[in-house]
Amino acid sequence: MNPTVLEPAERDPKAIRRTVIVLFLLMLVGGAVIWWKYTQQQAKDKQEEIAGRSPRISRLTKNFAGVCQDGEFRGLDDLEGKVWVVAPIVPNHPEENKIQLQKMQDLAEHYKERDDFHLVCISVANPHEHGYEELAKIADEVGADMSQWWFMAAEEKSVIGFLKDHLKMAHIKERKGADAEKFGVHDIPAQLRIVDQSRRVRGEFEQFDFDFALARQNEVRERLKTQPTLLDDKQSREGQLLNLYHDMEEIWTKRMYKVIDYTFTETETDQDPNYGSAIVVALTILAFIIIMGIRLRKHRNATTGG
Rank of each mutant, 00 (worst) to 15 (best):
N2R: 09
P3M: 02
D12Y: 08
K14N: 12
R17Y: 10
I21M: 11
L23Y: 09
M27F: 12
M27V: 12
M27L: 14
V29G: 01
V29I: 08
A32I: 01
I34E: 00
I34L: 02
K37M: 00
Y38G: 00
I50P: 08
R56C: 13
C68G: 09
E72D: 13
R74I: 07
G75Q: 10
D77S: 15
K82F: 00
N92W: 15
N92L: 07
N97Y: 04
Q100E: 06
K103I: 09
M104H: 01
D106V: 07
L107H: 02
K112F: 09
E113I: 02
D115I: 02
D115T: 06
D116C: 04
H118E: 03
C121Q: 04
A125Q: 03
H130D: 11
A136H: 00
A139Y: 00
G143Q: 02
A144W: 00
S147G: 11
M152T: 07
M152A: 06
A154M: 07
E156N: 10
I160Q: 03
L163K: 00
D165I: 05
H166N: 10
L167F: 02
H171S: 15
K176Q: 14
G177E: 03
G177D: 05
E181L: 15
Q191C: 06
Q197R: 15
V201E: 06
E204P: 08
E204D: 15
Q207G: 13
Q207H: 08
F208W: 02
D209I: 03
L224P: 01
Q227F: 15
D232W: 05
D232K: 05
D232P: 07
K234S: 15
L242S: 06
L242H: 01
W252G: 05
T253H: 09
K258W: 04
K258S: 12
I260W: 02
E266T: 04
E266S: 13
T267D: 15
T267H: 13
Y275G: 14
I279T: 04
F288A: 03
I291H: 14
